[in-house]
Design a protein around this nucleic acid. Structure first.
Lengths: 240, 240
DNA sequence: CGGCGCTTTGATGGGCCTCAACGTGGGTGG
DNA sequence: CCACCCACGTTGAGGCCCATCAAAGCGCCG
């Protein structure tokens, strides 16, 4: 009951998967959820311990990393507030979900959540829809990595981040306005996202900066001065 | 009834999604399925017509292509016999599923199949599991494209194809034996898969050929002479 | 202040792309 | 039957984009 009330006040309620559920299922979820703060660098699932838990992000960003034995690595996905994080029905596939920033999440134990999925088909359907969207996004991202130039990739990612980090906010995102965000990723992580090296990313930042399209703050600060031009440089958008 | 009998004789019965269903659901599916032959180049879903249908591949290979307005394109997935082809709950995402070879499929009309998914949760669960596997595969593939060298990519794809095209066959695949397959893709399509240009693919074939690891037949013929070495060159495998 | 992590900038080289020409097999029609 | 064509594959030469190696700048914290 208290849980239900909390959910009504939740910052991501409109977009989160829970909003697509029947009242009965939402109620069940409310009984098993626990709110957690997770600090940057912690692993949500995967890795050596074969962690298995599920979460809905309330604030913060999660990165999905594909590690390779020889040291090469690739970030294969990013999850933002209201996204669902977890891999049902698997003991991990070499993929690691790691907090890129500090997080607030609604967390569920693995077995409990999977059990609920089997008895409540609306929950299962919601997860299926999310998974299909993730799959579409992954394939868009693949195109970006395989076929776009370094500038296009950096621009694409910045547009994505700018959009994800500002929606949910009040009408601050009026077209043409400058957008200021704190990047959730380091230069190295951006490079890991885009299939580039960090030096290349840095050079692309410098290039966009001298052209007045973006401005960079001290550490992870970013100001998008000309979103329209940045979008143009991206030559097509990605979705997640 | 006749359908059920046909299913019992189906070549992909063991691995296809239908085998994971309850008898009742399988029966329902049997009532709406129709067997089709599809010739290479035809579109299964996506594209201008916003086609929506679902299929289980009995024989042949389907490619999922991401087209871009400026001509760039990328193959973001391959589907082999027993795989499920379709995109539920969407009118297409710019992705096109196209027959890479002639196909035999069990086909279902879009709305009918989606309706069945909503009333039969075991079907929905099966599709969810498939989708999760596809997502894992897509992310493995992403790593390959982003981080592997040209030789590693070509070797990875050849290992994948050799495996997919020979399993389901009788014990022909004894370790160390030579494997002969007909490639389901042209050089251009292979390049589209791997984020390379066709000339680069051709050169990698030449290099592997002179080293005696593979031999190439007249057109699409391929003989893997040393699967162990080819696997080593791949530096890690991909799954679909 | 000095050490450390992250970012920036520079110099150089290599891997793959690009453009171009040639080879080859399969189908066609006179 | 064979000359012709066309799609596809192969091979070569050159150049560019990005990786690599190296060093210096900058903010942060002890």
């Amino acid at each position: 009951m208290t849980m239900r009330i909390k959910c009504l006040q939740c910052a991501v309620r409109r977009m989160a998967p829970c909003s697509a559920l029947t009242a009965a299922t939402a109620n069940e979820l409310g009984r098993i959820v626990y709110r957690r703060r997770i600090s940057a660098g912690q692993v949500l699932y995967g890795g050596a311990q074969r962690l298995s838990s599920f979460a809905i992000i309330v604030s913060g960003v999660v990165k999905l990393v594909n590690f390779h034995s020889d040291g090469r690595q690739q970030i294969v996905g990013l999850q933002f507030p209201s996204d669902f994080v977890g891999r049902p029905f698997s003991d991990g596939t070499g993929l690691v979900a790691e907090a890129a920033t500090d997080l607030d999440v609604c967390s569920f134990s693995g077995p409990t959540f999977e059990g609920l999925m089997q008895t409540h088909s609306d929950l299962e359907r919601t997860i299926l829809r999310r998974t299909l969207d993730d799959l579409d996004a992954a394939r868009e991202w693949m195109f970006m990595i395989a076929r776009k130039t370094a500038e296009e990739r950096v621009a694409s990612l910045l547009v994505l981040i700018a959009r994800k980090m500002t929606d949910g906010l009040d009408g601050n995102v009026k077209a043409g306005a400058e957008i200021e965000v704190d990047l959730p990723l380091s230069r190295t992580e951006i490079a890991d996202c885009l299939g580039l090296r960090l030096e290349t990313v840095s050079r692309q930042f410098a290039s966009l900066r001298t052209e007045g399209i973006i401005a960079t703050g001290r550490r992870r600060g970013l100001k998008v001065c000309d979103l329209a031009e940045l979008t143009r440089r991206a030559h097509g958008s990605v979705d997640a």
